[in-house]
Amino acid sequence: MNIKTLIASLAVLATSAAAPALAQDFPERPVNLVVPFNAGGGTDLLVRGFAPYLAEALGGDVFVSNMAGGSGTVAAGALAGQRPTGYQLGYWSVTVSTIQPQIKDVPYGIDSWEPICSVAASPTMLFTNAGNGIETIEQAKAAIEAEPGKYLFGSSGPGAMTHLTTVAAFEGLGVLDKIKHLPFQGSGPALQAMAAGTIQFFGDTEILMQRGDFTPLVIFSDARSENFPDVPTATEVGIAAPLNELYLWGGLFAPAGTPDDVVAKLSEACGAAVASEGFQSFAADTQTVLNYRDAEAFDAFFRAQYEGNTAIIEAAGL
C-alpha cells in the first residue's frame, strides 16, 4: 500500500467515524459497554454476562471495558463528555446515576444522559445478626430506644446503598439519632464485622441471606418478597414515603444527545437481550432480579428516582 492510498483510507475511516450514525446501519463497529467498577465485581460480571446477548440482538460486536474510581463517578464523568454516537454506553447503578451526583461535585447530572433501558432491579432489605434476640423491626426499634448509642450499623462506605437502606429504616422509625454508623471499605469487611458481631445491622439486597446467618427485618419494596413472605414491607411498619421504597437497580445509559433512532434501536435490542433464554438462565444462576424498562419508561423512572432519593440523602447527612 502506498502512502496516498493509506491516507485516503484513513480519511474514509475518519469521516465514517465522524458522520452521524444512521439507525439502519447501526452498529457499524463494536459497541463499548463501560463498567464503572473494577473487573471481577458483581456489576462487571453482570455486564460481561449481558454483552454477548446484546451483541446477538444488535447484530454486531459488543465489548466491555472497565473504568473504576470515585464510586463509579469517574467513568460516568468521562462518558458524559463523549460524543453521543451510541457506540459508548455506560452501565450505571442507582448510586452512580442518582445519588453520587447529588452528594459530590461531579461533572454530570440528571440531564447528562439518554437512558436506554434498565436491566436489573432488586429491593433492598434491612438485616440483623441471627440469634441476637432481635427478630422483628419492632424489637429492633425497642432495643435501640432502650439503649441509645449502644447499637452500630455498618455500610460498605458513606453514600453507598448499604448505608442509605439502614438510614431509610431508622430515619423512618425515628431512631436514627440513637444508633451509630460504622462505615467499612466495601461489603467484605462489613460482612466480616457482621459475622463477628461488631455491628448489628446491615442493609443489602435479598441475596445477602445466602451469605451468612442473618435475620431479615423489613423490605423496601411495594410488595413482600416471594422468598421471604413473613418479612413486612417498609410501608407496613410505618416508614413513610419517600423512604419506604429503595431499589438497587442498574441500566444502560448513553450520553445526552444520542440520536433518537439509535436510542430506540439499542433499547429494543436490550429488551430482546434481557428476554433471551441464555441471559435469563445466567440471571437465575447469579440470582439477579431482572427488570427491563424501555427507553421511555426508564427515563421516567430514572427522573423519579433522582428526585425521590434526595430526601434519604438529606437524612443520611451527606
Binding site: 484513513l10 475511516l13 475518519a14 467515524a17 463499548n32 465489548f63 471495558s65
Partner: peptide, 12 residues
C-alpha cells in the same frame, strides 16, 4: 484479548 487499550479518534 479484546481488552482494549485506548484507541485513536481516527479509527477504532
Amino acid at each position: 484479548l479484546t481488552l482494549p487499550l485506548p484507541t485513536s479518534p481516527v479509527a477504532w
